[in-house]
Design a protein around this nucleic acid. Structure first.
Length: 577
DNA sequence: AAAAAAT
């Protein structure tokens, strides 16, 4: 989803450039955005693409109705028709495709700017459930932006959608469109602003990224997007807010702060989006989210529209999430290509004490693979912040240009690290799970799970940083006896993704037996794909004591063993993003 | 057990 069409072009402006304020006193004209998307900068006016402003039902024949995407969208495999040509595999395409990692060296350059591999879309299974599901739209040309879109976007949604396919767009478009056509009389509070839409995400960098994307989409629509997140001076964000906000993108902590200061009111919220929704509702975040959604002044479900997006949706989380939804549609959209064959997954048995030298071997082998004198980007996940610092230091002293991103670094350092990585200045990024979800970093050729996570869902998100938008990628995991609880779910995931599962891992997996109900996908064969928990029979069951999953008990009965009957049935997980 | 998120 996120990004990508126009994004490779956007390398330049991470966070800093985004919030240019016209110095004090230099207030711009309201309603007229001074922001120019990166892909339109430094161009003669004549070559500017048409403004994507909404112009009625008949003008919607442009793909996505968005005038802005660069030529990229068309370059790599864009097909104006959706005629069925069958899925020929990624390697079968011209410039958009890349040969398998196993047989070739990664072709960094070929992955660049290839756009989305639309051929691979042919194989995507789409599943919907719920009442009165609107008919599918197969081409953008057939969208009647008027009534159909209106109808489509009226319902609450729980969505699983693939990487690099336009997920941000999927929730931004209806919001922007709805705001543009709506007549919303907003109160004028003294220094209180009343956004119409709220988009919450679990990390600051993801909020920044969503903000960037949303700004591109709302260019010249008059719709104002503002981002608020912690670790950065609040005053600047306050100034932006006071200049007007329709869509607020935020991380939960900073938003609560703003709400307590009465700088923001949620009274007028018509659209609520939780990106990485399962993450937002896990034990760490749930209380904050409930507070924002249920205990402030936000209109109740059914009045506002609520959109939940994530690649992974454990059933326990779906159950929680239904607290926020009203008569919603569950939508599962398959990945580009057949499951993970776009990402070659490797697992290697590496003892703790061998990890560093093993990593060095991988990096050495990869050094040759860069283009234009630049190394292919490698994202290395570790378990702890200390571990990240220490590994980065070790790499650096051994001559590898590495940097690190984790929660103990200052926000400035975090954003700097990400920028430096994206630009290839430090083509190795050592990260904790702060970088596991949602971040769209073009040209990540290799994800290394130096330390494997304990939850298979985290693994899914981590490796999803590569192989995006129809491109191939490589994911290497270092497995040892400390990861035995992951053996089974990992082996199952790999099998489902048509990956080669090492015999030793299979043995580990069978040894692990039914090691607790925590890890999903243990139930035979685990069908891959989003699945609406309402269809699983357990829906509405009132477990003995008349407990009902929708009520009270906000203390998060998720993940807690026994929280939900023994965990049978394959978990709802997917390798989407 | 760890990570993230407000100051």
């Amino acid at each position: 989803m996120r990004t990508s069409w126009a994004d490779a072009v956007a390398a330049e402006n991470a966070a800093s450039g985004s919030s240019n304020i016209n110095g004090p006193g230099g207030a711009p004209h309201p309603g007229r955005s001074s922001y120019v998307p990166p892909h339109l900068r430094n161009r003669p006016p004549a070559s500017d693409p048409p403004a994507p402003s909404y112009s009625g039902p008949t003008s919607g024949n442009d793909r996505l109705g968005y005038g802005g995407p660069t030529s990229e969208l068309r370059s790599g495999g864009f097909r104006p028709d959706y005629g069925h040509q069958g899925y020929v595999g990624v390697g079968g395409r011209g410039r958009g495709g890349v040969g398998g990692w196993s047989s070739r060296e990664p072709a960094f350059d070929e992955q660049e700017n290839s756009g989305i591999n639309f051929d691979a879309y042919e194989d995507i299974p789409v599943e919907t459930s719920g009442e009165n599901v609107p008919p599918p739209v197969n081409t953008f040309a057939e969208i009647d932006l008027g009534e159909a879109l209106n109808l489509n976007i009226r319902r609450d949604l729980m969505v699983s959608a693939q990487t690099g396919s336009g997920k941000t767009a999927a929730f931004c478009f209806p919001i922007i469109s709805g705001i543009m056509r709506g007549q919303f009389a907003r109160p004028r509070g003294y220094r209180t602003v009343y956004p119409l839409a709220l988009i919450l995400s679990p990390t600051r960098e993801l909020s920044i990224q969503i903000h960037e994307e949303a700004k591109k989409f709302s260019y010249q629509t008059g719709v104002k997007v503002v981002v608020a997140y912690g670790g950065a001076p609040i005053t600047q964000q306050l100034r932006e807010l006071e200049r007007g906000v329709d869509i607020l993108v935020a991380t939960p902590g900073r938003l609560v702060d703003l709400l307590e200061r009465a700088k923001v009111s949620l009274e007028m919220i018509r659209y609520l989006t939780l990106d990485e929704a399962d993450r937002m509702l896990d034990m760490g975040f749930e209380p904050q989210i409930r507070r924002i959604v249920e205990q402030m002044d936000m209109p109740p479900r059914g009045v506002r529209q609520t959109l939940l997006f994530s690649a992974t949706f454990p059933k326990e989380i779906q159950r929680l999430a239904s607290d926020f939804l009203s008569n919603y549609i569950f939508l599962a959209i398959g990945r580009v290509g057949s499951s993970t064959d776009l990402i070659v997954q490797r697992v290697e048995f590496v003892h703790e004490y061998d990890k560093r030298s093993h990593l060095m071997d991988l990096l050495h082998a990869q050094k040759a693979n860069g283009v234009h004198g630049k190394q292919a980007l490698t994202l290395v996940f570790v378990e702890t912040k200390k571990g990240a610092d220490s590994l980065e230091h070790w790499l650096y002293t051994n001559g590898f240009p590495a940097t690190t991103i984790h929660g103990d670094r200052t926000q400035q350092e975090r954003e700097q690290a990400l920028r430096s990585f994206k630009r290839g200045n430090t083509p190795i990024l050592v990260a904790t799970d702060v970088a596991a979800r949602g971040l769209d970093i073009p040209h990540v050729a290799h994800v290394v799970n130096f330390d494997l996570p304990n939850d298979i869902d985290d693994y899914v998100h981590r490796i999803g940083r590569t192989g995006r938008a129809g491109n191939t990628g490589l994911a290497t995991a270092f497995f040892n006896e400390n990861n035995s609880s992951l053996a089974r779910p990992l082996a199952d995931l790999m099998q489902e993704s048509n990956q080669e599962v090492p015999a030793w891992l299979t043995r580990y997996a069978s040894r692990a037996s039914y090691g607790g109900g925590k890890n999903k996908r243990s139930g035979g064969g685990g069908r891959f794909g989003g699945r609406d928990f309402r269809r699983d029979g357990s829906f509405g069951r009132s477990g003995g004591g008349g407990t009902d999953y929708y009520s009270g008990n906000s203390s998060g009965g998720y993940g807690v063993s026994g929280g939900y009957g023994g965990g049978h049935g394959p978990g709802v997980t997917s390798a989407w993003d």
